[in-house]
Amino acid sequence: MTGTPIPDESIDLQISDILQTISWPANKDALVNAARNAGASNEVLAMLDGLPEQDYADIASVTPLIGSNFGPGLGT
């Protein structure tokens, strides 16, 4: 994680930081709970809550579904 508190980061950085702390595989509820526990913004919580109810294998299975500007290498 970066030194910036989660709520003060851009939405992309918030999501990136949160997804990197998840124990995979994870379902939507685990993603939302991790974001809530990290103090993510309401926008990030809404994005994650809007994901389909399913299990996600890894970061790469989540990022294409989020309306955000992730670049390559997010999971590294």
Rank of each mutant, 00 (worst) to 15 (best):
I59T: 03
G3P: 07
T21H: 10
N42F: 13
T76M: 14
P25N: 02
V32H: 04
P5E: 12
L45I: 12
G67S: 13
A30Q: 11
G39V: 06
G50F: 08
Q20T: 01
G75Y: 12
E43I: 15
T2K: 11
N33R: 10
A40V: 09
P25E: 00
N33K: 05
S41K: 11
L51C: 11
P64M: 07
L51S: 07
P5Q: 12
A35C: 06
D12A: 14
I15P: 09
P52Q: 12
L31R: 03
P52K: 14
F70G: 09
P72T: 05
S68Q: 14
Q54T: 06
V44Y: 14
A60I: 05
A38W: 05
S61C: 01
L74R: 12
Y56F: 07
G75R: 15
W24S: 03
S16Q: 13
N33F: 00
Q54N: 06
P7Q: 07
A40N: 06
D55G: 07
W24Y: 02
S23A: 03
V62W: 06
P7Y: 12
P7V: 04
A57E: 02
P7K: 10
M1F: 09
L45W: 07
V62N: 01
L31G: 04
A38G: 09
D29M: 00
L45Q: 14
G39N: 06
S23V: 04
S68C: 14
L45S: 08
P5L: 11
A57T: 05
S16V: 11
L45N: 06
L48T: 11
S10H: 09
T21M: 10
A40T: 04
L13Q: 08
Q14G: 07
S68I: 12
A46R: 15
T4R: 15
I6A: 03
A35Y: 03
D17K: 12
Y56H: 03
G75V: 10
N37G: 02
G3Y: 15
D17G: 10
P64F: 07
D49L: 04
S61N: 03
G75N: 14
S41Q: 14
L31H: 02
I11P: 07
S61Y: 03
S68A: 15
A60M: 09
S10M: 06
L31F: 09
D12Y: 15
E53I: 12
A30G: 00
I15C: 11
W24F: 00
I22R: 04
Q54V: 04
D17V: 10
T4H: 15
L19W: 07
E53L: 13
E53T: 09
E53C: 10
L13I: 08
S16K: 15
N69T: 15
S10I: 03
I59A: 02
D49E: 13
I66G: 06
L65Y: 02
S23F: 04
N33Y: 04
Q14P: 08
S68Y: 11
P64R: 06
L65V: 06
T2N: 08
S68M: 14
D17P: 05
L51A: 09
T76K: 14
G39P: 04
V32E: 04
M1N: 05
S16E: 15
P7N: 10
D55R: 11
N42H: 13
A34V: 00
T21R: 12
L45G: 11
V44R: 13
G75K: 15
T21P: 02
L19N: 05
N33V: 00
L65G: 04
D8A: 09
D17W: 10
R36M: 02
Y56G: 03
N69I: 13
S10E: 07
T63E: 08
